[in-house]
Design a protein around this nucleic acid. Structure first.
Lengths: 199, 199
DNA sequence: TTCGTCATGTAATGGGTTACATGATTAC
DNA sequence: GTAATCATGTAACCCATTACATGACGAA
């Protein structure tokens, strides 16, 4: 998840870790800020994998290799950028349309990069997500129906509010799916162009 | 979090681990099922702490002590129940009204046991939660206002939907707070009775 | 010159998951 | 008898967090 978020953000523009953290917060925000303790190790791993490289901003020509100096002591800023392999990796992640793509942990990230995702993959993920959320809704709904009489006001309140939220998410997804369908018809025949922005 | 959930559920009725897991799913459901890999170690820890004890259901008089047999090989069912210390611990947790009580991780559990929580603690937690969620809403709202023009349809869609959900949560909390205030006035003077169920 | 923010990193820790291993009980 | 579900537990792992340590740079 973090991996894809970093690749996607660096795909837009090279930046350094600190900036990346703020962008992650802004784009996937709503939830908590990403900590340095997970960001920097992730960048290190990805550098070792060869997906990103760190450029010394004081000397842009000097690209830091995978076995880069620890930079402890006199530490410089490091601007991270995608390598060719990194771009390839991101494109590969973008085409994945399996079940994990619509689970809670990944759906947000996948959705955030939908503009760069093929229309058919987008559709598969949206429909998978909707099925997933409907499943959860039905489970909660029947559990609520069973326990309605036996539980206290607050438990009921909590579950009802949860159910309402899930219901809203299903409706939201349905609207998105409808919209995708319309876009697809308008383009007619092709299924790989992103729709023109309508907002 | 898990600790309080277990104490609270066992406070209603003794049960064994497997059942506990289903109850956790039902009450705090909506999200994922609790895994055995975290449930059983938690029960073990709590037994060592002296908060719960495991009773052999074949011989109810034989209460398994803290240094209970590993039960490997021929393993029996174990019905867990709160000890006096466990009940005390749960009551203590119920009175905590600090900032952690309204953070994401704990709020759900705290709310689930509101019927057993003092009205003033309830109020403090609800108001704290509302402030917390409003904070997040304002952050997201201004971030959305700043980036509105520069981002693609999907990013916008994701953020707008997030904002709507947070808005709804604020309104929900406000309604609960209003209701609490009314209940408090009706009881007039006292502040420790749970309100009569009105649903 | 000192404070706030930018900036990079490591180490310890925590709280959970998955996968594994085992066995009892019930329904067909 | 055999499959499903009930039932208990451990071990390895994963991914993130907090706390810590360090230092540069700009503004008051």
């Amino acid at each position: 998840m973090l991996e894809m978020a970093i690749l996607g953000l660096l795909n837009e523009a090279p930046m350094h870790g600190y900036e990346l953290r703020k962008r992650v917060l802004a784009v996937f925000g709503g939830f908590r800020a990403l900590s340095y303790g997970s960001l920097y190790p992730a960048l290190k791993r990805m550098r070792e994998q060869g997906w990103i490289c760190g450029q010394d901003p004081d000397d842009a020509s000097r690209v830091l290799p995978a076995d880069a100096p620890p930079l402890t002591g006199k530490r410089g800023k490091v601007v991270y950028a995608l390598t060719a392999e990194g771009k390839e990796r991101f494109q590969e992640l973008l085409t994945e349309g399996g079940p994990e793509a619509w689970e809670d942990e990944r759906f947000g990230v996948r959705f955030a990069f939908f503009a760069q995702t093929d229309a058919d993959v987008r559709m598969r993920i949206l429909e998978g997500r909707r099925r997933r959320v409907e499943e959860r809704r039905d489970g909660l709904r029947s559990s609520l129906a069973r326990t309605r009489q036996r539980v206290d006001r607050y438990t009921l309140e909590l579950q009802s509010h949860g159910l309402d939220s899930i219901d809203r998410e299903v409706r939201w997804l349905s609207e998105l799916i409808d919209h995708e369908t319309v876009d697809r018809r308008q383009i007619d025949g092709t299924n790989s162009q992103p729709p023109k922005s309508t907002t």
